[in-house]
């Protein structure tokens, strides 16, 4: 199995990012009575951050797939 440890680490890092994006202090930064594209800033922020997080989860999986493919044939050329 490819480097499960580093994969776990990657997901854990993403989890921490998620916790940060939705942590209370960060929410208060966007808690302004202003709108962007006609949408209240807080709503826009939460949904945008959410979308970004989902894209990052997809990427996390995709990059893993690539690593899998480029993994060299372990027994291939090694005559030892």
């Amino acid at each position: 199995m490819l480097d499960n440890r580093s994969l776990t680490g990657r997901y854990a890092g993403l989890f921490l990012l998620g916790c940060f994006l939705f942590c209370y202090p960060v929410l208060t930064i966007f808690n302004l009575e202003e709108s962007l594209f006609g949408i209240p800033l807080l709503f826009l922020y939460i949904f945008t951050a959410w979308s970004v997080l989902i894209v990052l989860i997809v990427l996390c999986g995709k990059i893993r797939d690539k690593l899998h493919q480029s993994e060299p044939d372990a027994v291939g050329n090694d005559l030892k």
Binding site: L7, T8, Y11, A12, L14, F15, G18, C19, F22, L27, L42, F43, I46, W50, L53, I54, I57
Partner: peptide, 22 residues
């Protein structure tokens, strides 16, 4: 109660799914 009144119920699972693999 606005956005914070219901969205946490769906953001929580999103965060948990990130930890889905481990």
């Amino acid at each position: 109660s606005g956005a914070t009144g219901f969205l946490s119920i769906y953001l929580g699972p999103t965060l948990m799914m990130i930890l889905g693999w481990p």
